[in-house]
Design a protein around this nucleic acid. Structure first.
Lengths: 248, 248
DNA sequence: TATAAATAGGCAAAAAAGTGCAAAAATATG
DNA sequence: CATATTTTTGCACTTTTTTGCCTATTTATA
């Protein structure tokens, strides 16, 4: 069998079954696993498939969602980088959805080994691409507007875990009003998340600071860390720092 | 043998077998391999064949592989459209992941009002965009390779529902071997899905027909509908139809 | 953390390809 | 017809490609 034929065969198997094992191909085509590995390497640099330990995966399965224009993306990236400091190897992390949290999911260091819980579909999609984190999706009804799980079953599930850290992307935060939002179902879930976690970090652009909405998620004193794009010594944060929130 | 005769012979062999080896041709025509190589070089600059190390490949063979992705996508879209006929307003539909199912998710008519259950992140992402369907995500550990929920909790959840229809994107289906797959965790979940649903429809391109993998999801007699891109009267389906599967 | 599988990188043998050359054959030209 | 010119072909040689094997590392997973 010619090399090109072999590679075509491999691609066909991948498109057919979404994944192949080097060992299987080696047996089927009757060449050494080294040869298969070299083929997979070539095809992967040609962007025809995704090479993984032990074989290869179909590309179509792993193409990413289109990133739409995100408001203040640079600020959100900065926030994400700051938030990384809170996440350590072996941690159990519970995260909400929201563009800032998704940005964080994208930049998690590949070496990080941790367990993430989330009910957000876009966030889960990003976490799932990470090689070393274990992902537990909290299922139930999906809220269309926020693409996040809501409902009693999800809340029960959240109550049954005890994560080290909750990363909350929020809509509004204010010293007096606390963390607030405007979707009843989402608020119930976020409430449960804050309650369950040992520590809670709020991720938000400063624009949302000192604003409030109609439904309350938690008080300021339940927030352990506040992460924004501005320097932690900025005047804006004095009152929050006094209230016991650590500013990052 | 004249040079032109020889080249015509080579082209004939290529069209017949899709590939030729320089060494074979040298023996058959009784000229040196150098001459064959020069012939192949000439024919390849004339765009009559594709020269590769060791011989040559037919043009159609090669170009069909380049276009395979698009070709398969068309097939999957066709399958998705056929599958639509099974889905009625008010139904509870349980779906797996896989590119074909995701294609279906993309083309659900906006007017359709139904409840969808899934454990696939990409599929959920598509369902979530639909205005009128209610989406319940089945949560648990997410399998990285297939981006689908796996694990005992997910299976228990599936067992607790009684959907009207299960839409299964499969990796391999065969009359004797039944529906098979290659990931243990995924197989457990799919098994539960088939068990739970009143009716099961298998969505697959015909290329996956009559192929099998190592782990069994269910027997052919548990499959109610088989949906492929080919006409339902195609010879390929006789045996399946005889086994009681309705071909769409 | 320990163990087995998978991988990368170096090496060598074999196959194939490129190169230059010269003999043979075909073709052109006076 | 004789000679010059071009084309074709095979051969000797070097270079490149392909492949399998080996060993040290890395990776997956219990």
């Amino acid at each position: 069998m010619l090399k090109k034929e072999r590679q075509a065969f491999i691609l066909k198997q991948i498109n057919l079954h979404n994944r192949v094992l080097s060992s299987d191909l080696s047996l089927e085509i009757n060449v050494s696993e080294d040869t298969i590995r070299r083929d997979l390497l070539e095809l992967s640099v040609e962007d025809k498939l995704i090479k993984v330990h032990g074989g290869a995966l179909s590309k179509s399965f792993h193409s990413s969602f289109l990133r739409e224009d995100i408001y203040q993306l640079d600020a959100k990236k900065l926030i994400a980088h700051k938030a990384l400091n809170l996440i350590k190897d072996g941690m159990f992390v519970l995260t909400s959805g929201g563009t800032t949290v998704i940005e964080l999911a994208r930049i998690l260091p590949v070496a990080l080994k941790a367990t993430f819980f989330t009910g957000s579909i876009p966030a889960a999609y990003e976490y799932a691409k990470h090689p070393n984190i274990e992902l537990i999706f909290i299922g139930d009804k999906i809220s269309k507007s926020s693409q996040i799980t809501v409902g009693g079953e999800a809340i029960m599930k959240i109550n049954s875990i005890k994560p080290d850290l909750c990363l909350l992307g929020v809509n509004a935060i204010d010293l007096a009003a606390g963390v607030t939002d405007n979707d009843w179902d989402v608020v119930q879930v976020k409430k449960a998340m804050v309650e369950a976690a040992s520590k809670t970090a709020v991720l938000t652009i400063t624009e949302k600071l000192n604003s409030s909405q109609k439904l309350k998620i938690c008080d300021i004193n339940q927030v352990d860390y506040l992460i924004t794009e501005k320097d932690h010594q900025h005047d804006l944060f004095h009152a929050y720092a006094s209230a016991g929130v650590e500013i990052l």
